[in-house]
């Protein structure tokens, strides 16, 4: 992926992410109710691997880390990404460096290694099974 396209994508994704989180932050618990955008859950009636991430990030913002872990551990990764990536990309853009682009390309190479891929897929699958268990029980 080219540098400019990647940086634009990250900034756009961060904007959407922050808007989504703040929308849910203000509506959560006020009776307005959040909007459910998960296609997978609507079609199959079962949660997808990342269902619960919004609730998890909201719990982290309230410093309720145990709740965040229970809703979905992916929330921690997402909260970290939301905090770090836009700042990193902006610093890179201002200082005209490409450290994030290099990191992204290296990370892609590492993730494609067989044992890393197998490990990550099993983690996601395990989390998915736990998610379905939480939803159905």
């Amino acid at each position: 992926m080219k540098k400019n396209k990647l940086y634009l994508f990250i900034l756009l994704a961060a904007t959407v992410g922050y808007s989504w989180i703040s929308w849910n932050y203000y509506t959560y618990g006020r009776g307005a109710g959040g909007i459910d955008l998960c296609l997978f859950r609507k079609l199959t009636g079962l949660p997808c691997p990342s269902c619960g991430t919004t609730r998890s990030v909201l719990s982290i913002s309230h410093l309720h880390f145990a709740d965040a872990l229970y809703y979905n551990p992916i929330g921690f990764i997402m909260a970290l990404c939301l905090c770090v990536l836009p700042v990193w990309v902006l610093i890179d853009t201002i200082s005209k460096k490409n450290s994030f682009h290099r990191f992204y390309l290296n990370a892609e190479i590492i993730v494609r290694r067989k044992w890393v891929a197998v490990l990550l897929v099993s983690l996601v699958a395990g989390n998915w099974i736990w998610n379905i268990y939480k939803y159905t029980s």
């Binding site: 989504w20 955008l37 998960c38 990342s50």
Partner: peptide, 27 residues
């Protein structure tokens, strides 16, 4: 929704992004 299309095309980073964000909030 799980980003499998992006993984197959070799765009692992985007695949992970799609997987972890509920398919980019479904949109």
């Amino acid at each position: 929704h799980l980003g499998i299309d992006r993984f197959i095309l070799g765009e692992t980073g985007l695949g992970i992004a799609k997987l972890l964000t509920c398919g980019g909030l479904g949109i």
